[in-house]
C-alpha cells in the first residue's frame, strides 16, 4: 500500500518555474544535484569493500532540498545538519577529498577521523556542525543565530532536520527562543516520511509539520522538496526574511530512495511498499531537472557527458586521495579533548 503520495506539481511546474531563471543558474543547480547523486552512488558502489568504515546515510532522492536551498545562501552563512550530512556538506561547498578521507578514517579527513560520515564539519565553508542525536544540532544552530544577533551580523544560520526531529522537545524549545529574539535562522525540515523504518503516521498525528511551526509564530512554508526550483525560490524568500526579520520554518516533502543507513534499498523488509518507492522514483528530482534543461535547450547529450566526466574525474581523484592518505597515529587519540588556545575565531 502506498502510504505517502508525491504531492508536488511535477515536471510541468518545474519547467514553468525554470523559465523565470537564467541558464547559468539552472545549470549550476543541476550540476550541484547531479554531483551529489553521482558521489552518493559512487560511495554506495564501493561501500561493500568495507574500506569506508563509517555508517553512511545516503541522500539519494533528496538532492533537490540541499542543492536548491543552499544556492540561496551566501558563502559566509552557516549551516548545521543531522546525521544525513553528505548532500548538505557538498551543497555548502564542502571538499570532496576531505569528505572521502573522513569516510576512509584518515588523519586528513575533514574531522580528522573523529566524526565519520555523520559528522562532516568544515568551518572554512560554513559547515559548522552536525549531530547524530536527532534534533541535537537544532539548538546549536539557534545559538549560532544568537551569536549573529549579539554581534549585529547579517549572517543567516540554517539547520537541516528530519521529520522525526520535530518529535523532540528541543526543536520547539529552540524555535520558541529564536522567535522570542527574532534570530536570523531557517529551520529546513526534510520530511521523507520515515525515521529509520518507522512511518510518520506511527509517530505523529496528521498535522502538517509546517503548521506546527506556524502555531509557534514562525513564517512557514510547505515545499515540494523534489522540485529544485521551488526549493530555491522559497529558500531565497526564507533567507531574506531570516536575515532581516527572524526565524523561518520550511517543510520540504521528499523521499529517501535507500535504507536509513548503508547501501541499497531496504523496501523488501516490508516497512514500506516497493510501489511507494517506485512512485517517488518516478518523480526523480535530478531526472526532472535534466529533462527541463533538455527541453529548454540548455543541455544536450554532449554537454551532459562533459558534466558527468568532470564529476567522475573529481570522484576518482578524491577516492585516490583518500585511499592513499595516512591513518591517524596513536598520539592523535587524545588530542583536542580540550582547547588550549583561542581557536574559535571564524570567518
Amino acid at each position: 500500500m502506498i502510504k505517502y503520495q508525491y504531492r508536488g506539481k511535477g515536471p510541468e511546474h518545474l519547467l514553468a518555474l525554470a523559465r523565470n531563471h537564467e541558464r547559468a543558474q539552472l545549470l549550476a543547480l543541476f550540476f550541484t544535484m547531479l554531483r551529489i547523486r553521482m558521489i552518493e552512488e559512487a560511495v554506495e558502489s564501493r561501500y561493500h569493500e568495507d574500506q569506508m568504515k563509517t555508517p553512511i546515510h545516503l541522500a539519494i532522492g533528496q538532492e533537490a532540498v540541499s542543492a536548491g536551498y543552499s544556492a540561496a545562501l551566501e558563502p559566509s552563512d552557516y549551516v548545521f545538519c543531522g546525521h544525513r550530512t553528505h548532500a548538505c556538506y557538498l551543497a555548502k561547498g564542502g571538499d570532496l577529498k576531505a569528505m572521502f578521507s573522513e569516510f576512509f578514517c584518515r588523519a586528513n579527513g575533514c574531522a580528522g577521523s573523529r566524526g565519520g560520515s555523520m559528522h562532516l564539519l568544515d568551518k572554512s565553508v560554513g559547515m559548522m556542525g552536525s549531530s547524530a542525536i536527532v534534533a541535537g544540532a537544532i539548538p546549536l544552530a539557534t545559538g549560532s543565530a544568537l551569536s549573529s544577533y549579539l554581534k549585529d551580523e547579517k549572517r543567516v544560520t540554517t539547520v537541516f532536520l528530519g521529520d522525526a526531529a520535530v518529535e523532540e522537545g528541543v526543536m520547539w524549545e529552540s524555535l520558541n527562543f529564536a522567535l522570542l529574539k527574532k534570530l536570523p535562522i531557517v529551520y529546513v525540515c526534510e520530511n521523507n516520511y520515515y525515521s529509520v523504518c518507522s512511518p510518520i503516521e506511527y509517530r505523529q498525528p496528521p498535522v502538517e509539520i509546517c503548521k506546527k511551526a506556524e502555531g509557534f509564530g514562525a513564517l512557514s512554508f510547505s515545499v515540494d522538496g523534489n522540485n529544485v526550483l521551488e526549493m530555491y525560490e522559497i529558500a531565497q524568500r526564507a533567507v531574506a526574511h531570516a536575515r532581516e526579520k527572524g526565524p523561518v520554518f520550511i517543510e520540504a516533502h521528499t523521499y529517501r530512495w535507500r535504507g536509513h543507513h548503508g547501501s541499497g534499498d531496504d523496501s523488501h523488509t516490508g516497512y514500506r511498499d516497493v510501489q511507494e518507492l517506485a512512485l517517488w522514483q518516478s518523480q526523480d528530482p535530478v531526472l526532472m531537472m535534466k529533462q527541463v534543461m533538455y527541453s529548454l535547450g540548455y543541455l544536450d547529450e554532449a554537454s551532459e557527458r562533459v558534466m558527468r566526466e568532470k564529476i567522475e574525474l573529481e570522484i576518482d581523484a578524491a577516492f585516490e586521495h583518500a585511499i592513499h592518505s595516512a591513518n591517524p597515529v596513536k598520539e592523535d587519540l587524545c588530542k583536542f579533548v580540550y582547547s588550549e588556545g583561542d581557536t574559535h575565531v571564524v570567518g
Partner: peptide, 15 residues
Amino acid sequence: EGMTGICTGAAMTGM
C-alpha cells in the same frame, strides 16, 4: 536542554 545547546552554538561561533 534548548538553552544549553543554544549557549553551545553561540560559544562555537565566537561568543
